[in-house]
């Protein structure tokens, strides 16, 4: 049996009396690429936020390569990268400095400059690297959030509607990157409303409806 990179048991989340996510068990394996689809308000983002540790689940446990996300934060977070749909950045750091902090905090200092140059070049942000983020468009911010995820080591990547503000070329690039990551045994879960993206990635699809996840 292949190693499990991300595992969630009995995961649920309620807002008051409203149960946005019904109890669910799920797991992601190395090289697995899954798209999560569902209507607006179906619970996609709630699930992604719970899995990424940004939203504390009402019930259940999440572990990354066996490390509990809340019990062993340091080891679990080293293995997880998350890209939100609307990333908010520090107003007083430039794009380059954001990358620097994230890479260095994860101990990825050695090849930082080369890696950052590559990523920013690929996403078309190289000329805008010294800008503060208020000067960035929504698409540019999303690209930077992707670069922030990709600049450091991880084994599980969670993306919440990563193509919502991307142009065609950037979407193509993202697809290539995701496929390359999968072949390097990274597990990826992404939410999307874009059927072309699902087709392009040839990914397994999970669907969520009224907070009930179907992984079949």
């Amino acid at each position: 049996m292949p190693q499990i990179l991300l595992q969630a048991d009995n995961l649920s989340r309620s807002y008051g009396n409203f149960q946005a996510l019904k109890p669910v068990d799920l797991s992601l394996h190395p090289g697995e690429l899954v798209t999560l689809v569902g209507a607006n308000g179906s619970g996609k983002t709630t699930l992604m936020l719970c899995l990424s540790g940004l939203l504390r689940p009402t019930t259940g446990n999440i572990s990354l390569e066996g490390y509990d996300l809340y019990g062993d934060e340091r080891n679990a977070r080293r293995r997880l990268a998350f890209v939100p749909d609307v990333p908010v950045f520090y107003p007083d750091l430039t794009a380059w400095e954001h990358l620097q902090v994230m890479a260095m905090a994860h101990g990825a200092g050695g090849e930082f400059e080369k890696r950052a140059r590559e990523l920013l070049g690929e996403f078309g942000l190289w000329d805008a690297r010294d800008l503060f983020l208020h000067a960035y468009s929504r698409g540019m911010r999303l690209k930077l959030a992707l670069a922030l995820a990709l600049i450091r080591p991880f084994s599980v990547l969670l993306l919440d509607e990563p193509t919502s503000a991307l142009d065609v070329q950037s979407t193509e690039l993202l697809c290539q990157k995701l496929l390359a990551l999968c072949s390097a045994d990274t597990a990826i879960l992404l939410t999307t409303h874009d059927p072309h993206l699902t087709g392009q990635l040839n990914a397994k699809t999970w669907s969520i409806h009224d907070g009930i996840l179907s992984t079949n």
């Binding site: 007083d92 260095m104 010294d130 000067a135």
Partner: peptide
């Protein structure tokens, strides 16, 4: 006050928790 652009800080940055102190 900051404007739109700034060259990266010259303060040396170290890996690990020191990166957050730098930030």
């Amino acid at each position: 006050r900051l404007g739109a652009e700034r060259k990266p800080s010259r303060l040396p940055i170290r890996p690990g928790l020191a990166a957050l102190l730098w930030k």
